[in-house]
Design a binder for these strands. Structure first.
Lengths: 215, 215
DNA sequence: GGTTAACCTGACCAGTCGGTCCGTTTGGCG
DNA sequence: CGCCAAACGGACCGACTGGTCAGGTTAACC
């Protein structure tokens, strides 16, 4: 419906600035997490602070736009692996790609790990990601190459988990997460040595207004 | 050396207030993480903001005092399991206790997972914890009940990792971490199905002044 | 009970943040 | 070229933070 009747293509400087803003923000968020100030992002982009809010009404919207792109790229990766020859290897490759993304981007880590802060759009993206991974997981499970009680949602949650395991030493050993991915994937392959002590996770639930309400 | 020559026992209201402060702060940090304001902590304790800074020069010092206590309690748990009959079960019990603690306390999660923000005292506590867990792990490894390439440092890192894996759903499924602890412990038991793709972590290294220097 | 130093308090300070607003600039179109 | 809406920029606002300090209070010792 947008741009339907009184459509007018945006000015060239506006699209240029939007692009500058998006890349500067992506870079800043990756380095420092979502806590970087809008002022710093604007400075990096070489534009005024007001211009930032012209393109994105709130900081949350800006974050959501960038995180949405990252989630989409991960979804694409997942879909590209649907018809891989070895479904276990495909699953491992997907997880590797995902954690590489997380390891490179602090903001992505934060947003993915904290449902109470999530923008509705991000939430929707993660839902789609879960569905994609579910398909990847189902194939592997049906072929019996991973234990039967693992779901796609498990896999998605484990991405953040693996990354966080290695996070405290990430400055000095940036590849350490590969160790824990290996360890956990051994657990995923293991044919249910022990039944898991808790049922699989339910879908992420909507927890009301997406901003931390607390106290 | 402190309190040696001109010692004078602190006033009774001072020790009472210190106690009130410590419990209020512990509660607030557990609920909301290290970001709760000093003002709120003071209000909870029923004391003035100035009194907080009389007992602890900076907010970091207050955090360190409380986190130090938690680490010490975990160290005690670990030492109590040194002579358990089944070393694998002992290790699992230790991890269960540790993650329970993490799951109940947001600030503990934050502090343990972020070396660059750590107070020197906290850092030292974690070092001691690692040594204790190393002993626990060595026993299990020597008896062959866990894979040979796992170290105590791995175990400590995995505590935070497991907790973080389940964190996004912790509001609705507070016990979900037990699922991932089970999964990962299966990986720990597995007799090296695959050699791990990265060497074990080196000790946490001192990264300069404990406050994030960045940008 | 009187003296005093330890203690308590909340107004206050400087700095940060997200977000607003309006005077100014500029790109596109007739 | 000349017009004007769209876009820009940065001073500004209110809310909030960790931390300070002057002045009133009180516990402990003589």
């Amino acid at each position: 419906m947008t741009n339907s009747s009184a459509a007018r293509s945006p000015r060239t400087d506006a699209v240029r600035n939007r692009q500058l803003l998006l890349s500067a923000a992506a870079e800043a968020f990756a380095e420092h997490g979502t806590e970087v100030s809008i002022a710093e992002i604007a400075q990096r982009a070489g534009i005024g602070k007001g211009t930032v809010f012209r393109h994105f009404a709130t900081k949350e919207d800006l974050i959501a736009a960038i995180m949405g792109e990252m989630i989409d790229s991960l979804i694409t990766t997942g879909m590209g692996l649907w018809d891989a020859a070895d479904p276990a290897a495909a699953l491992l490759e997907f997880m590797t790609t995902g954690i590489e993304l997380l390891a490179r981007d602090r903001a992505f880590c934060e947003v993915v790990g904290r449902p109470s802060l999530q923008h509705p759009a991000v939430r929707a993206g993660i839902d789609r990601l879960c569905e994609v991974v579910e398909i990847l997981t189902n194939r592997a499970r049906r072929q019996g190459v991973i234990r039967q009680d693992i779901t796609g949602q498990d896999i998605v949650l484990l991405l953040g988990g693996v990354r966080h395991t290695a996070a405290p030493l990430a400055d000095t050993q940036p590849q350490l997460w590969r160790r824990y991915l290996g360890l956990i994937f051994d657990g995923i392959r293991a044919q249910a040595a022990q039944p898991l002590p808790h049922p699989p996770p339910r879908r992420l639930e909507f927890t009301g207004p997406y901003c931390e309400s607390s106290h």
